[in-house]
Design a binder for these strands. Structure first.
Length: 670
DNA sequence: GCACCTCGAGTTCA
DNA sequence: CTCGAGGTGC
């Protein structure tokens, strides 16, 4: 084939890029394929010295722009009326039903059909308006005030999902969509060490309004298209026809567009979208409900501000801004000092947020918060529920300095910085460390002492001089019952729970001890291999390193932990007071012929018919390996309700997902 | 030595 | 859930 012909074919293929959004699971031109084709085209263009006019290699213009030229939209870009809750949404629908009924009474000869609805996602990005004349992209602009926007053609051309050429050549059309930055792209950008971007929406808006289109290109934006605003030579009878037109002309259309005849089903869909929100790779701040039938839309018409035939349903914000007021420093059970930001209380996703974690001093530096006290910051509450500061709203604004402590805020001991963290090395004389250690000892995966909490640990520390886990086993009823907020009942229950804990197995006991760098899975490896406490206590670092997943650092932690006379004394005291720490039972036979045998499985989200721990146990009995993070090695992801980033990642990697709990149970039962 | 996977530890509010 | 960092395989 001659190069000219190949080039034409490549340009044709590359312009079909968005075809893969036709369905969720069948890419026609995947990102990888796109890159391969693109490279071929670049090579051919270099070889022949010819560049075809619609070549996607022409997306990035060279010169810096001086400013944006205004563009008058051919039809106005309406903004939508907002519904904050179900009641307001119902009100909107009631008005639609009333107006349709009125019309039908007055025009019995040509009645409107019963309203049917389309539900789309409401993307959180920057609205784009693209103008095509005879199949060629001739202008692109921002929304502006809805009538006049700013021309940003050079910037928009850098977006791969914007077709430079479309098959429809019947006249001028204007197509509307939303320019967005995918969250995975944002994460990759921030990992690359470039200036971190705090927020996908701001990043997209900033990129599109940057005078240098090269910067826009680097941001790798994407877009979803949802409307044909102005169209010469074509009419649509309903929304679906319009969507088909967009698809047939290579516009990227979001897969989550659904049609309903009943308003109750619309409400259900809004619920589903809300649940799906956190697993999407882009930001949405709500959903849009529209009437599908175009004639009905015309009849309903517009108020002076909004169309009557559409409404935006806004979700509760998952992101907002507030003032960073101060930073306090907490001491954990390992002596790690963690900064906690106190912020001006603000409503976020339905709760009032007053505290945000800052993780460690490295985090403060990375987010440029060193001088941020008193300034306005972005905060986010993702589906993990934990509020987090993203960064300053205005990067340049400086506030008061966050001063790092040099001494432990609890005991005054000098602090040591190790990596990104500060540590208090006063292991036994520092109250929060001791309380934390005892709380950890009693926790569910450890000795599982019911009714015990951090509050209890603190009270016992203050009032009964409980200074180490071993002291729990010499508590007596007379002392306990005298304590504030303790009665006969509570004292008996606690002693009973402590008694029960004596029977916990070796792995749980080892975990309860809280050996540094040694958690649940390492202690299980130790217990399964050595099968007795004495054997583990006398193991050498060399021996330990031979075990799976134990390297030099962990081995040294274990050896020096047991070499400590204070620890040895505590352990012997517990054993003499009746703690069994018995060796695990013989490993149970695992099935090798089940659906799950040999598969690496990740559980995420909330299951209803069994807990995640129960599911994990059953899966392991069936020969599966249950791990915590999704990677290329993962064979299967089981996603319950409100699954978040793990589900998104599984989709991205094309890993098999089970979302239906009943199906999971069927498979578990064989 | 690097990339990737996994583990450990700490986190909020109602 | 997210981060940092330990362990391991290439």
């Amino acid at each position: 084939m001659d190069p000219m012909q190949s080039m034409e074919q490549l340009v044709e293929e590359l312009n079909k890029y968005n075809y893969h959004y036709y369905t969720l699971d069948k890419p026609l031109v995947s990102d990888k394929e796109y890159d391969v084709l693109y490279d071929k085209l670049v090579a051919l263009e270099a070889e022949t010295g010819i560049t075809l006019p619609d070549s996607p290699t022409q997306r990035v213009g060279g010169e810096l722009l001086k400013g944006f030229k205004p563009h008058r939209h051919l039809t106005p870009l309406w903004s939508l009326d907002k519904a904050q809750n179900e009641e307001q949404l119902q009100n909107w629908n009631n008005r639609v039903l009333r107006l349709v009924a009125d019309y039908n009474t007055k025009n019995p000869e040509s009645p409107l059909p019963a309203p049917s609805y389309v539900v789309e996602l409401k993307f959180d990005g920057l609205t784009l308006n693209l103008t095509y004349t005879d199949g060629k992209l001739v202008q692109a602009s921002t929304r502006g005030n809805g009538v006049v926007g700013e021309g940003i053609l050079a910037q928009v051309k850098t977006i791969k999902s914007v077709p430079l050429k479309i098959p429809y050549t019947g006249g001028t059309i204007e197509v509307q969509g939303e320019g967005i930055m995918n969250l995975s792209v944002l994460a990759a950008h921030n990992e690359s060490g470039a200036d971190p971007l705090k927020n996908a929406r701001n990043a997209a808006a900033g990129a599109l309004r940057n005078l240098n289109p090269k910067v826009t290109a680097e941001r790798k934006l994407s877009a979803f298209f949802y409307n044909v605003g102005y169209a010469e030579g074509i009419r649509f009878d309903n929304h679906k026809e319009m969507m088909d037109f967009l698809k047939n002309n290579f516009f990227k259309v979001n897969p989550f567009v659904s049609y309903f005849d009943s308003f109750d089903l619309v409400m259900e869909e809004l619920q589903r979208i809300q649940e799906r929100r956190s697993s999407l790779d882009y930001l949405i701040d709500g959903a849009v409900v529209k009437i599908t039938d175009m004639r009905t839309r015309e009849v309903l018409g517009y108020t002076d501000k909004f169309p009557r035939w559409a409404v935006a349903f806004k979700f509760e914000a998952e992101e907002t801004t507030t003032i960073l007021e101060s930073v306090v420093w907490n001491v954990g059970r390992t002596g790690k000092i963690t900064p906690l930001a106190k912020v001006e209380p603000v409503e976020l996703a339905g709760v009032t947020v007053q505290n945000c974690t800052l993780n460690n001093v490295g985090d403060i530096e990375r987010k440029n918060l060193k001088f941020a006290i008193g300034t306005r910051v972005f905060i986010r509450r993702s589906n993990d529920v934990i509020p987090e500061i993203l960064g300053k709203v205005t990067e340049e604004s400086d506030g008061q300095e966050i001063v790092y402590p040099e001494h432990c805020p609890a005991c005054g001991f000098p602090l040591e910085q190790r990596g990104a963290h500060l540590f208090c090395n006063n292991r036994f004389g520092c109250k929060p460390q001791t309380v934390g250690r005892i709380t950890h000892f009693a926790s569910r995966d450890a000795m599982d002492i019911e009714t015990f909490s951090e509050k209890t640990a603190e009270q016992l520390y203050d009032e009964l001089d409980v200074r180490e886990p071993a002291d729990l086993y010499s508590l007596n009823f007379e002392d306990l019952v005298k304590l504030e907020r303790f009665g006969t009942k509570k004292a008996t229950n606690l002693l009973e729970a402590i008694e029960v804990s004596k029977g916990r197995d070796l792995a749980a006991f080892l975990f309860a001890l809280g050996i540094p760098n040694t958690g649940k899975s390492t202690t299980k490896v130790l217990a399964d291999h050595y099968r007795s406490l004495e054997a583990i206590m006398s193991a050498t670092a060399e021996e330990l390193t031979a075990l799976p997943d134990i390297g030099g650092i962990v081995a040294d932690s274990i050896v020096s932990f047991f070499a400590d006379p204070f620890m040895q004394a505590g352990i012997h005291k517990m054993l003499s007071l009746g703690v069994e720490a018995r060796a695990p039972e013989k490993p149970q036979v695992v099935a090798t012929d089940s659906f799950f045998s040999g598969k690496t499985v990740v559980l995420t989200g909330t299951l209803h018919k069994l807990t995640r721990d129960e599911a994990a146990e059953k899966l392991e009995a069936l020969g599966a390996k249950v791990t915590g993070s999704v990677s290329k090695k993962t064979d299967l992801v089981i996603a319950g309700e409100k699954a978040g980033s793990k589900l998104a990642k599984a989709r991205e990697l094309g890993i098999q997902v089970i979302e239906d709990e009943d199906e999971l149970i069927r498979l578990l039962e064989g």
